[in-house]
């Protein structure tokens, strides 16, 4: 399958008033054409930084990509100039954010905002543009299209705004859609609608999606492949079934085990001990070692990346295993 995005060994450094931190410590992954990749992790794991650096939206004054490459359709994009970036953003790759209210400009009508990327990236005439906008709004499940294009963001409800955001992101039919927790701020019934919508659009446009979330349920619903991140590194990568049925990394196992289960109501939940460490207080070696129930001597050294049947895991536990060994437990 063709790769649409190939990120290799990406490192990002932040310079703050209180010294430097490194939110990304060597991240490599690929996104295939037409697949949905889920990136899972907790606060500070670097999932948002990863995607901002792919989009070229890191704050210039404090963040720096210190190492690594990002190939988009086989073109290296980390060194692109801002105006070259702009050609990509909105047309070939686009992004939806968690909070739809702040990501739409309150002083323009929905129609204005939706026509902006079309004007920039296409040569459509006025009538064609309107037709495209209305078609796209219908695609994202908005029925009163003629009305909506004359309305302002504050006149819409949260779910509506998120639909408009999605419409804005896909209006130029990008190859890659990056979604940063787009349903976290929404209610469950609306979340179900939006997830449904994303599935439909993906199939129709053969688009690739990177979906950031902390909700494993959403991953199970939507994604084909999963990456688990912890303190700026990928600790596990697997296809979605393998991930849910036989996770390898103790952190992934912990996350899955701590989900409440139907048949264990009122019982003590499995809980990963301790807290996510800050980026300036990481333990030596494996950064999960201070919370890991399986930790042993070698965890004081940086763990190797082990590949088992297409499942990738950064852990000493599997260091001796040969490629191709059974991974069922």
């Amino acid at each position: 399958m063709k790769n649409i995005l190939d990120v290799s060994n990406l490192e990002v450094k932040f310079q703050t008033r209180r010294g430097g931190v490194q939110p990304l410590r060597g991240v490599s992954f690929r996104v295939h054409e037409g697949e949905t990749l889920g990136i899972v992790g907790e606060s500070g794991c670097g999932k948002s930084v990863t995607l901002l650096s792919v989009m070229g939206l890191l704050p210039n004054d404090m963040a720096e990509i210190s190492k690594g490459k990002v190939l988009f359709e086989d073109q290296e994009i980390t060194h692109l100039k801002e105006h070259e970036r702009r050609k990509l953003r909105g047309s070939k790759m686009s992004m939806i954010f968690q909070e739809p209210m702040t990501s739409l400009n309150p002083v323009f009508t929905i129609g204005d905002q939706l026509s902006q990327p079309l004007r920039k990236h296409t040569k459509l005439g006025k009538k064609e543009m309107k037709k495209r906008i209305i078609d796209m709004l219908k695609l994202v499940g908005i029925s009163r299209t003629e009305e909506i294009i004359h309305q302002y963001p504050h006149q819409l409800s949260g779910g509506m705004r998120q639909r408009v955001m999605i419409c804005l992101a896909i209006i130029c039919e990008p190859q890659l859609l990056i979604a940063d927790e787009p349903t976290t701020a929404l209610d469950v019934t609306i979340q179900a609608q939006i997830l449904d919508l994303l599935k439909k659009i993906k199939q129709k446009n053969n688009m690739s999606i990177i979906f950031i979330t902390h909700d494993l349920g959403v991953v199970a619903e939507l994604c084909d492949r999963v990456i688990v991140m912890y303190t700026g590194q990928i600790v596990e990568e697997a296809d979605v079934r393998t991930f849910f049925n036989s996770p390898k990394h103790p952190y992934s196992k912990g996350l899955l085990a701590s989900m409440p289960k139907e048949d264990e109501r009122k019982q003590k939940l499995y809980a990963i001990k301790g807290n996510v460490p800050g980026l300036n207080e990481l333990p030596l070696g494996c950064s999960f070692s201070n919370r890991c129930p399986m930790a042993f001597d070698r965890c004081k050294m940086s763990p190797p990346v082990v590949k088992v049947d297409g499942q990738i895991c950064r852990c000493w536990l599997y260091a001796e295993q040969k490629v191709g060994e059974q991974h069922g437990e």
């Binding site: 469950v188 019934t189 979340q191 179900a192 997830l195 909700d215 494993l216 349920g217 959403v218 199970a220 619903e221 979605v240 079934r241 849910f244 049925n245 989900m259 289960k261």
Partner: peptide, 8 residues
């Protein structure tokens, strides 16, 4: 509307 717990 609760998300499923396993892709299966």
């Amino acid at each position: 509307a609760i998300p499923i717990r396993n892709p299966d």
